[in-house]
Design a protein around this nucleic acid. Structure first.
Lengths: 190, 190
DNA sequence: TTGACTTCTTGTCATAGGGCAAGCGCTGGT
DNA sequence: ACCAGCGCTTGCCCTATGACAAGAAGTCAA
């Protein structure tokens, strides 16, 4: 069973509907370092990751990269603004390791979204959960210390810390790489 | 023309569709201080604000209130997690001044969402823009100083600063009220 | 092997912002 | 008129984190 079938297990799609949905996706492979989306482009796909790790980042006013997200197996890489509102993106998404997955383009997405009630309930649910996670992250930036945020990431997504360079993780947590290094030292000692 | 008609001007709804949509909303009035939604409840409505100012906040681990949003005229008050995923909310939303507006309950929302393609394009667009703003806020917490965030709020939403008590604004910006007070002093001097 | 890179760590110093407590001016109730 | 409470400011001191620069260690290629 591939990752798409797993993904849609949580939906209410009937077998014939599911078949229609699965057919709309295309297999896709990325090499480590490849850009799936670059600033200025228009995002025309969403991407369901089967293997590998991807990272989204933006460039701030001072030219620094800020990691906004990591995507691992089973997660859906998407740049919401660009994909849904059909505008050029200000984010970059690239592969931190060799990746495989399944892509769906906007046109096909619209067909399914407007054509299948169960698909749109599913899609709305995913977007909502994305929203809720982002909100949690936003709140955490206010209420938690960098160390707490690091520990939460460690507990919730240890694979990210194993596979992603520390500097990417640091900006995701909202600290510099030096600070994150100190935080790790702090935690390491008993 | 009331606020709902203004709101749906940006949609593609045809006159007959629009009529159906408008009929589904109910007028609603809140007194200053009233809670529109309280922690533990299930959000069963969205609320389009016609007049007044509302505030959403969460309680952190140490029991402190963190303002997560303000809603003014023309904005849609909603607790996304609770409304769409049908779970008890962990947020509170209350009126900072006397408010009027129009409510739509979940059942009616679902009818419109699944029944009218143009309504669901509209609703999806609103959710997406909410997502994008939240993302901007989240990024700003990392890249900008408290003073910069204050200035952005001042430029973008001056009415919030005029109508909301400073302590609510402070936690929205991610600082204490003392710090915000100092920031304002700093800015005041030429 | 050597050199160029990248990743991560560490030291030093500077600064933004937090915690706490006091003070001050309004406002509303009695 | 008086008190209580709220909203905002301010002073003092402290801590977390940033900026910058210098290593140490690992990786890769010639």
């Amino acid at each position: 069973m591939n990752i798409l079938q797993q993904l849609f297990q949580e939906s209410e799609l009937h077998p014939t509907e599911l078949e229609r949905v699965l057919e709309a996706y295309q297999f896709c492979r990325l090499d480590k370092g490849d850009y799936w989306l670059a600033e200025g482009q228009q995002a025309n796909h969403i991407f369901v990751l089967e293997s590998g790790l991807m990272r989204a980042y933006a460039i701030d006013q001072k030219g620094k990269e800020i990691t906004t997200n990591f995507y691992g197996r089973g997660q859906i890489a998407i740049e919401v603004n660009s994909f849904f509102l059909r505008m050029p993106t200000s984010e970059n998404i690239h592969a931190l390791s060799d990746c495989t997955g399944w892509q769906l383009d906007f046109e096909a997405f619209q067909q399914l979204f407007h054509g299948l009630e169960n698909f749109r309930e599913f899609a709305r649910g995913r977007l909502v959960r994305k929203f809720v996670r982002l909100k949690g992250r936003s709140l955490s930036m206010i209420t938690d210390s960098a160390q707490e945020r690091y520990l939460q990431l460690l507990r919730g997504h240890p694979q990210i810390l194993q596979e992603a360079p520390l500097k990417y993780v640091a900006s995701f947590l909202g600290v510099t790489d030096s600070s994150l290094s100190r935080i790790r030292k702090e935690i390491a000692r008993p």
